[in-house]
Amino acid sequence: MPRPDVDAVMTAIDQLLAGAMDEEQMPAAAETMRKLFNGSKACFASVGPEPEDWIAYATNPDISLEEHCFGELAPEFVEMGFALRGIPLGVVYRDQEVFGTEALHRSRVWREWMRPQDMYGGMACRLADNGEAFWFFDVQRGERQEGFDGEDAALLGKLYPVLRRVAELRRHIGRVTLQRDQARGTLDRLALGITILDHEMRITYANERADEILASPESAAGLRQGRLFARQPADQRKLKRLVEAAQQSAHDPLADHQASMILRGSDGVHSLSACVMPAPSSACPQQHGKVMIALRRLETATDLVACARQLFDLTDTEARFASALANGSSLTEAAEAQRVRISTARTHLARIFQKTNTRQQSQLVSLLRSAALPLQPR
C-alpha cells in the first residue's frame, strides 16, 4: 500500500490546525486524516461520564453519531471509553488489542454502529485528559482493506503532538465560547443598552436592548452606516469628545475615565442617559482603544409595584402605596386611590419605612425611583 508523501502529511497538519481554531473545520480535518491513513472512517472524540463531555467530529456525516452515542448504546460507549483510560497518552493502540476481536464483535457497539459503517479494524491514540473525560483520535479500515501495520502506527505516533495540540485548543476554545455565550445571554437580559465602539464610533457589539434603542426613529441616538450618532448636533459633538477621551485613557492603567451625559430626543421626550467608559483594553497596544457606552431610556419604571415587592419584600398593598408615592401622589391621594383611611395609609407607610430602611417620604421616593430592576421582562 503506498505511503503518504511529505506534502500529504503537511496538508493534513494544516487542516488539523485549521480545525483547532474553527470548529466547523473539524469534520474536514477528520476527513483529511482518513485519507492520509487510507481509512474507512476517522473521528476525533471526547468521552466522559457526563453528557457535556461527549463531543465528536467524524467522517461519514450522514450517519448520526449523536443518535447512537446518546441513545440506547450510550452505556456501551461509556464502558468502552473507560476501558481506554489506562492507555498512556500518545501510545498508539488497535481496537482488537484492547478489547479482543471476538469480544469486540459480540458488542452492540460493533454490531449496530461499527459494522454497518465498514469499521473492521481501528487504530487510535488518546490525546489529552480533561478530568475524568479524555480526547482521542481513531481511524478505521474496512472489511476488504489491509489492517494497519507498524509504519501506520509510527506515522500516527509522529502526528500525536499536533493531534494533542488540536484537542487542547478545541477544549480551550470551547470553554471560551461557552463563557462568551453566557456573557452575551446575560447582557441581553439587561434593560440597559450596552454597546462597544471602535475608534471611528462603529458598533462592534450591541446587546438586544441597545439594538432596540438604536433602531427606534424616536430615540435620541441611532445608527448611520454602522456608526453610533446622537440626533442633536450639540449632543453629537459632546458624545464624540467623551468617546475620544475614553479611548485615550484605554491603555493608561492609572486612568479611571468615566463620563455621563443626556442625549435629548428630538421631541424632548425620548431622551437617553449615556455612560461612556473604556472597554477592557486589547492585548495589542498598537490597536486603538475601544469604548463601552451604557444607554438607558429616561423614563419612570413601568412596574414599580413588582420592583418594590421583589427588592424590599413588600406586600401587594404596601407595594401599591410605595409605587403611588414614587409616581408623585401624596399620602392622602394614595389613601383615596386605595380606598382606605389616612390612618391605615400611615400604618402602611410606617411598615414601608421599616422594610426599606428609610425615615422620610422623600427618601423613600428617591429610593424607589432609582430602584427599577435592570432586567428586561420575558
Rank of each mutant, 00 (worst) to 15 (best):
A153T: 01
A154G: 05
L155W: 02
L155C: 00
L156D: 03
L156Y: 03
G157Y: 07
K158Y: 11
L159S: 03
Y160S: 04
P161C: 03
L163A: 01
R164C: 09
R165L: 14
R165M: 14
R165G: 09
V166M: 08
E168W: 06
L169G: 02
R171G: 12
R171E: 15
H172Q: 12
I173R: 11
I173P: 01
G174P: 00
R175F: 13
V176H: 11
T177G: 07
T177M: 08
Q179V: 10
Q179D: 12
D181E: 15
R184A: 14
R184D: 15
G185L: 09
T186R: 09
T195Y: 11
D198I: 04
D198G: 08
E200T: 08
E200P: 00
I203C: 09
I203G: 03
I203F: 11
T204H: 12
Y205M: 13
Y205C: 10
E208I: 07
R209D: 00
A210L: 04
A210E: 01
D211N: 14
E212K: 10
E212V: 02
I213C: 01
I213S: 01
L214S: 05
A215H: 07
E218P: 00
S219K: 03
L223E: 14
R224K: 15
Q225E: 15
G226R: 07
R227Q: 15
L228W: 04
L228D: 02
Q232N: 12
Q232F: 05
D235L: 01
Q236C: 09
Q236G: 08
Q236S: 10
R237A: 14
L239D: 02
K240M: 13
K240A: 15
K240E: 15
R241I: 11
R241H: 11
E244F: 07
A245H: 10
A246Y: 00
Q247L: 08
Q248S: 05
A250I: 02
H251M: 04
P253M: 08
P253K: 11
L254I: 04
A255G: 05
A255Y: 06
A255K: 05
A259L: 09
S260L: 14
M261T: 10
R264V: 10
G265W: 00
S266N: 12
V269N: 14
V269T: 15
V269P: 03
H270K: 10
H270V: 00
S271D: 13
S271V: 08
L272E: 00
A274I: 01
C275L: 15
M277C: 14
A279M: 08
